[in-house]
Nucleic acid binder design. Structure first.
Length: 455
RNA sequence: GGCGACGUAGCCAAGUGGUAAGGCAGGGCUCUGCAAAAGCCUUAUUCGUCGGUUCGAGUCCGACCGUCGCCUCCA
């Protein structure tokens, strides 16, 4: 069976073949750590995680690089050199370095809570200033740059197919009302290196052949991916918003320097939406994973919710939808737990699952296979073994779930209720059941006696 | 202004031109002292609207309506 993935570059579903089997180079655009990640951001990383797990399931050895943008992410091309990090630091009265560290740690903690497998390499932009300067030099030597008052820019008009990834209509952009040219020669030109503002000491700045300053936002991904994965690697992924600008610029830089289109496959995750609009910090509608946890939700319920929609379609977030995911995941976990000791993986059922994963990571369909499996004729032991294999891709920790410990006081109430029921003292039994409920537990009567469960 | 996406049951959503996956919620039944939970069954003659192509369209084409995204930082 072959994994098929939708490649944005060619706008087609392609059979995946590693460039250098069995290794797969995977690069994921990570966060700009000037604020907490919201659950919309996290959807993209859950997608990348499923992709990585699917590749691993196919026996590939995945080398996964994720960047941490801790410098250079400009507010806009028209500003005077303040980037997002410095701005946030100023507003919070904290150093840009401390701020970056704090949000980086918070981000990593979020990923762990979502059971996202850690990248092979975490690449901080500020740890790779040399590599970025070298790459800008390379691009300069090839004649793709020009200098303005505030920085070194990439001349996108020197590439024949600039913007191919996003199928950009350059003439249309020129005519567009929203593009400000400033000192740039072309609307799509972008900074490779920005100078520190005149007479101003930035918290984050470095010397370079062109003057003191800091790298542009796009160069880090080209430089760091080349360092760890080479100038042409297997898969580059990120959010859909990166198609037109960030990834187009990454490709331009790498093309200029190395003559490759950076990655063989370009995969893009679509946005999480709220009330049919995007979740965004500027919109003021963003929800952090911590808020879900504070409300009592298991982060993996959010992961389940994400698995219920295809990564190339917008997912509408709602608390009702999350509640549904909670119920579904809980039922699945309890069911899997109830299957006991794993037996043998069933090949046919396993293949059905993989077939959906291979179809451009159709996880909604894959989940449907899971539910079908629960109702199948397979033995419980074999169901368990099979679903645990599924979970290597799903990442829902289905095999780790255990019923919560029940406190002795509650167990005592249950015992007393059992006695009351045996004596057919229904009123007293119901009273005790109410007490058990108040303690946060529910009791259900099975043929084998009463079973208690935390609510 | 340019480019693009989407509109499927109460909700979240799959869907390769061949007769609407799955989950949640709802309804019924079984079980139960009553419940709860669970299990089983059930829930869209229909896929924004109107045309067209076709033996056949949610799927292709066109128009229209609606929603959204990117083009300025954003996963």
């Amino acid at each position: 069976m072959t994994l098929h993935l939708y490649d944005t570059y060619t706008r087609s579903l392609r059979a995946f073949e590693p460039l250098k089997p069995p290794e797969v180079g995977l690069y994921t655009c990570g966060p700009t750590v000037y604020d907490y990640a919201h659950i919309g951001n996290l959807r993209t990383y859950i997608f990348a995680d499923v992709l990585k797990r699917a590749l691993t399931l196919h026996g590939y050895r995945v080398k996964h690089v994720m960047n941490i943008t801790d410098v250079g992410h400009l507010l806009s091309d028209g500003d005077l050199g303040e980037d997002r990090m410095e701005m946030a630091a100023r507003m919070r009265g904290e150093s840009a370095w401390d701020l970056a560290e704090r949000y980086t740690q918070a981000f990593m903690a979020d990923l762990e809570r979502l059971n996202v497998v850690e990248p092979t390499v975490w690449a901080r932009a500020t740890d790779h200033i040399e590599e970025q300067i070298d790459m800008v030099k390379c691009i300069e030597e090839k004649g793709f740059t020009y200098r303005t008052d505030d920085g070194i820019y990439f001349d996108t008009s020197k590439l024949d197919d600039y913007g191919y990834l996003g199928r950009l209509d350059l003439a249309g952009l020129q005519a567009g009302a929203r593009v400000r040219l400033g000192e740039k020669r072309n609307p799509t030109d972008f900074a490779l290196w920005k100078f520190s503002p005149e007479g101003q000491q930035r918290q984050m700045e470095w010397d370079s052949p062109w003057g003191t300053g800091f790298p542009g936002w796009h160069i880090e991904c080209s430089a760091m991916s080349a360092k760890y994965l080479g100038p042409y690697f297997d898969i580059h992924c990120g959010g859909e918003d990166h198609i037109n600008v960030h990834h187009s610029n990454e490709i331009a830089q790498t093309q200029a320097c190395y003559g490759t289109r950076l990655a063989n496959f370009w995969l893009h995750a679509y946005f999480l939406q709220v009330d049919s609009g995007r979740m965004g910090k500027s919109v003021g509608n963003f929800i952090r994973l911590q808020q879900l946890i504070d409300r009592g939700y298991d982060p993996l319920a959010y992961r389940y919710l994400c698995l219920g929609a295809h990564y190339r379609s917008h997912l509408t977030f709602s608390w009702d939808a999350l509640d549904g995911a909670v119920t579904a995941l809980d039922r699945l976990r309890e069911t899997v737990y109830g299957w006991g000791t794993p037996g043998e993986v069933d090949e046919s059922w396993f293949d059905q699952f993989v077939a959906q994963v291979d179809d451009d990571l159709n996880m909604p369909r894959a989940l449907a296979v899971v539910w079908d499996l629960t109702r199948s004729d397979l033995s419980d032991a074999d169901k368990k073994a099979t679903v645990l294999r599924y979970d290597e891709v799903l990442g829902l920790k289905l095999g780790e779930w255990r019923p919560a410990e029940v406190p002795a006081e509650v167990l005592d109430l249950v015992r007393r209720r059992d006695d009351a029921r045996a004596a057919r003292q229904w009123a007293e039994a119901d009273e005790l059941r109410d007490e058990i409920m108040e303690a946060g537990y529910e009791v259900r009567d099975t043929p084998d006696g009463a079973v208690v469960r935390k609510l």
